[in-house]
Amino acid sequence: MDKINLKKLINAREVSLFIVLILFGIFIQLRNPAFGTPKNINNMLINYSTTMVLAIGMMSVLLIGGIDISIGSILAFAGMVSALVIRDNPDTSVFVAIMIAVIVGGLCGLINGLVIAKGGVPPIIATMGSMNILRGLTYLVANNEWVAAYQINEGFKKFAMSKYLSFGLINNLIFIAFVIALVAYCFLKYTRLGRKIYAVGNNAQAAEISGINISRIKILVYTLMGILAGLSGALWVSLYASAQGDMGMGIEMDVIAACVIGGVSLAGGRGSVVGVLLGAITIAMLGNGLPLIGVSQFSLDAIKGAIIVLTVILNVLLQRQKLKNSLRRREI
């Protein structure tokens, strides 16, 4: 019979992160009671739902040891294309608008994947290139104009404000984020393809020898990332009821930060959906909570940067400790 190992449970990263989050929440709550109200928490989750969706995609990219810094631009490009379609065809349904963004994003991701897997271009170079190409294209397709709120149909604007997907339980955006998290959890944990992603990240050579087609996995992962970025683009347009050329700029930093805080190893092979979700909630609490306790808006980036740097260092230290412990156990 499996006994639940209490020590192991406490040592698990997700649990310690959860405890830190609760303490942080209590701290903010004591300084400003407006934080813990259901309305504020609801708003916070809605505003950061795109970050959650993107973080789940980014996790799968990081799992194979890659990185994708073009997601902000994919988000903007896909969101802009779908907003332009809505502007020109006011009777576009919500589903079609979202599907357009998803397809555009998926194609962008596919191109990234092909360049990286078939062209042998390092992920950071390839996505840095596509980040700029797509950002430029976003401005160009829109002719340097915005798509303003009055040009977007009511149904699409209401999508981000209503709860009909979950039959009135929670907001649509939060619902989508959690459904994607759930699907990703099952996909990575229980399907053959999901396990292959972990295998490639852990040891690409071993994975290749055991018959996994690495370049196919790479293309798949970057395409998935593109699809999720495209979806986020549509959600973003719906949430802010407008599409601008500079939307989502720099969001890749938030997303990578969420993954790093959630314990995803940038060397690949290590990370869990639960951790990433908690990481995204950490980012959300920082962005939403710190201004509530009087931290200047201008200091947020410095704090975020410091947290990323410190967390990656902390991750390394924890990992070293773990290795040391397991070595010690072996000696006895």
Binding site: M253, S296, F298, S299
Partner: peptide, 28 residues
């Protein structure tokens, strides 16, 4: 000091940090 870290992620973090400090000093 932390050889396990890739230069990409360290400089990504400091990229936000350094510009963040600049923003903190000068605001808008």
């Amino acid at each position: 000091k932390f050889k396990e870290l890739a230069p990409m992620i360290v400089t990504l973090g400091t990229q936000i940090l350094y510009r963040g400090i600049a923003t903190m000093i000068l605001k808008d």
